[in-house]
Amino acid sequence: MDFDKYLEGQSKQRPPLYESDSFIYWKNRFETYVKSKDLDLWHVITNGDFQPIVQNPETKLDEVIPFEKQTDDLKTRLVKNNEAKMVIYNAFQVKDNKIDLLVQQYEQFVIFKDESIDSAFARFNTIITSLKALDEGYSSKNYVRKFLRALHPKWRAKVTAIEESKDLTSLSLDELIGNLKVHKLIIKKDSEIVKAKVERKFITLKAKKESSDEECSTSGSEDEEYTMAVRDFKKFFKRRGRFVRQPRNDKKTFQRSCDDKNDKSDRKCFRCADPNYLIGECPKPSKDKNQRAFVGGS
């Protein structure tokens, strides 16, 4: 019991507010309040309004007393009628206010993006239970549709599937909540599986990258060592006035170039200028021995 509500029954300014879920308790408090305020008020509440009538002594019939002929005492009693109505109105006025507030909460009810289904259902159930207590309940069909509409847009695909596969007129709110909770668990499990796969892929790629970096580093070191060795080798032969041997491939290229230049059409005997043979095949004798020796040496 709230302390503020308890004080409502003790105050002479207003009666205890009506509570449908604890009617007997409220009735006793209300009766105590009215009687402590004015016994005539309780009489009016339980028996009806005071009537401005008087019995005609001649006809023995009740006659309504005109206002101008009413005594002050009668007028005071008639005022009790309106006071009793005001007490009842003040006691029940909170019900209308509560209903208006709950209806507004019901119509504006939404489920937040990261809110769990259990938390949303707890809030929603509090609203509809309070409306039922105030005799302002909605049908179960309305509860189901309202809860579906209140879901965050990320649930849109699931809502569409439920609307297409279920009969919302017969679907209970508890069944709907169970369906949504199962769907939430499935999504969570799938998300964990995908996350684990991404993490494994990331670790694999990271390991490959580290291995590649190590190979590149080793290859770079070997290339650097080779370059230094070649440089030292060249320096060694330069100091001795010798040329570095031409690579085999370059030598072949040079030989082919020379062969191309020395075409048969340009060949001729050095001794007699005959293009059909060379000096080694020349039938003419040499003029001196020194020239033959030179040719043979060549």
Rank of each mutant, 00 (worst) to 15 (best):
K37S: 02
D72A: 09
G9W: 00
D232M: 06
K189S: 08
T126S: 07
K37M: 05
T46D: 11
Q93W: 01
D250L: 13
Y226H: 12
A150M: 01
D167H: 05
K85W: 01
R156P: 04
K75Y: 05
F92G: 07
N56E: 00
K206P: 04
I128D: 01
D100W: 09
T59L: 03
F50G: 04
T126C: 09
L151D: 08
T169G: 13
G297L: 14
P247N: 08
I162K: 05
T32E: 14
R267E: 10
R149W: 03
D259N: 09
F50A: 04
L278I: 10
A84H: 00
D250T: 14
D118T: 15
K154N: 14
G296T: 12
D96E: 13
N276T: 15
K268N: 13
S211C: 06
I128Q: 00
K80N: 01
P247F: 03
D62I: 02
N28C: 04
G297H: 12
K80F: 00
L171T: 08
D96N: 11
R271Q: 13
F147D: 02
D260H: 11
E83H: 00
T76W: 09
K146T: 10
L148E: 01
S11Y: 04
D73V: 10
E164H: 07
S140R: 08
D190V: 09
S116Q: 08
S22W: 04
I99Q: 05
S219Y: 13
S286H: 12
K146C: 12
N125V: 07
N97I: 13
E31V: 08
Q108T: 06
P283W: 15
L180F: 12
K209M: 02
A84C: 00
A120Y: 07
K268S: 15
K264R: 06
Y6V: 01
K206H: 07
F124T: 07
I45P: 03
P153R: 09
Q108S: 06
P57L: 00
K195R: 12
E8D: 05
A91R: 00
K289Y: 00
N262L: 08
E115C: 14
K289E: 09
I128L: 04
K261C: 08
K132M: 01
F294Y: 15
K289V: 07
D96T: 05
S139D: 06
D4N: 07
N276L: 15
F254L: 12
N56I: 03
P283D: 13
I24R: 06
K197M: 14
V54R: 03
D266P: 00
Q10S: 06
V54E: 10
T126E: 10
Q70D: 08
F121K: 13
W42K: 02
V94L: 02
D114I: 11
R256T: 11
I65C: 04
S36R: 05
M86V: 06
Q13H: 08
A150T: 10
K27N: 10
G48H: 10
K95C: 03
